[in-house]
Simulated assay, not measured.
Amino acid sequence: MDKRKPTLIRHTVQDNHAELELRVDGDILYFQGHFDQFKLLPGVAQVDWAVFYARQYLNTPSAFKGMEVIKFQEPILPDAEVTLSLTWDEDKQKLAFKYTSMDGERLAVHASGKMKLAQPDAEE
């Protein structure tokens, strides 16, 4: 079976916010062929994980309706430990996410953005 999710180290959930500490194991399927000389976690995997964990911990709707304000700033490399912060805005039906890690004493922001989610049968 191909591994697609990181190792969850710990998580906290409070109201509409979740924070997860993840180890992005080097044997995750998404690293295969992306890229041979400099492996990095593709943005599509980061978005997939944000939606997956938001559904699991914040009970968000499952249908992806679009992205806005997305930035991929620093690559996530194999075996990195990152923090995924998720905030669900029920009124706007928007999920904000951010991947960060500590680089020495500096907080590195790997990716951030907002996405619109809805029930699978919801009309826009």
Rank of each mutant, 00 (worst) to 15 (best):
M102E: 15
H110S: 07
A63D: 10
Q119S: 13
L86M: 07
L84P: 15
P75Y: 00
E124N: 12
K71H: 11
I28T: 04
A111Y: 12
D79G: 03
F52V: 11
K39N: 04
Y57F: 01
V24P: 00
L20W: 04
N59E: 13
E21C: 08
G26F: 02
Y99G: 08
F97L: 10
K116I: 12
S85T: 15
Q37P: 11
I70W: 15
D48M: 06
L22W: 02
R55S: 14
F97N: 10
A18L: 03
Q56I: 02
Y30K: 09
L41E: 03
A96C: 14
Q56F: 02
D79E: 02
G113D: 08
E123V: 06
P6E: 02
P78E: 00
W88N: 09
L77G: 05
L8S: 08
K71F: 10
L8R: 05
F38P: 06
M67Y: 15
R55P: 13
Q46M: 06
E124C: 10
H17W: 09
F35C: 02
N59K: 11
D91F: 15
Y99Q: 08
R4L: 10
V47S: 00
Y30F: 09
F64G: 03
H11W: 05
L117T: 06
P61C: 01
F97K: 10
K98H: 14
R4A: 09
E74Y: 14
D48Y: 06
L41P: 04
L58F: 03
S101E: 10
T83F: 07
V109E: 09
W49Q: 04
L22D: 01
